[in-house]
Amino acid sequence: MELTEKKFKMPGNIRRRKLVNSVMIILCVIAGIITILPLLYIFFYTTKSGITSLNLDFFINMPKPVGEEGGGMANAIVGSIILIGIGSLIGIPVGVMSGIYISEYSKNITAFIIKFVTDILSGIPSIIIGIFAYGLIVINMQRFSALAGGFALGILMIPTITKVTEEMLKLVPQSIREASLALGVSRWKTVLRIALTTASSGIITGILLAIARAAGETAPLLFTAFGNSFWQTEIDQPIAALPLQIFAYAISPYEDWHRQAWAGAFVLILLVFVINLIVRFVTRNKFSGNQ
């Protein structure tokens, strides 16, 4: 032992290199831990604070005036569903169709331009989309409305859906399309009934992701949907939304409202978690299926 150590004595700098190696790898592990720590903290804290206030009342009752205990966020939940519905009517067709264009019809350069613009759109702060919807719809209608809020959410959904549609269509083997074309099936039917159908599970998960993101968006709704403490389902009227309600309650001074806000936050986090879990599951199946 001693002999070998003498014979192959490590030069000092190798020892240093090994030390640096260990230190850096430990630092990377620490980085991993401190990244997921806030997540776990947020997750458990929200669960702990939210779950006690989460009951049937939360889903079916209207908000109570200040001072009265209880009440729920039924109007905000319905409002969010309406807003997302309007958003989907805009975001899904534009996203899916432009995704189809990039994947199936575009040449290299046009594909690059559209993908670039999609990336730019996804980088525009959501509050600016809110200003845009305000200028385009609120000003012209002379009032805040579900339509304006849903429009803003729809724009925010587009880039995610475009990207996922394009990527999922790219995963469909060319041979499947050729098989269809060789049967004398026209190109557009091949795209819609063969390629899109084959990619549909992936595209649907992408749409779910976009919906999950839209469901939590607050900033673009502040001056479009505006919020409403009453029951309102008309699309040309100001409408409540879950994140808006959480925001209003969170910055209020009332303990009971805080608890309700946590319950709302818990619902949102659960939605995000479940949707991401589904996405994980589906995409994993997709990849194992291709092997």
């Binding site: 997921i36 607050t218 936050a265």
Partner: peptide, 15 residues
Amino acid sequence: VEILAAIPSIIYGFW
């Protein structure tokens, strides 16, 4: 880590 990116910012603010 992916979930971390998907949590709505309102919840970050609240927390």
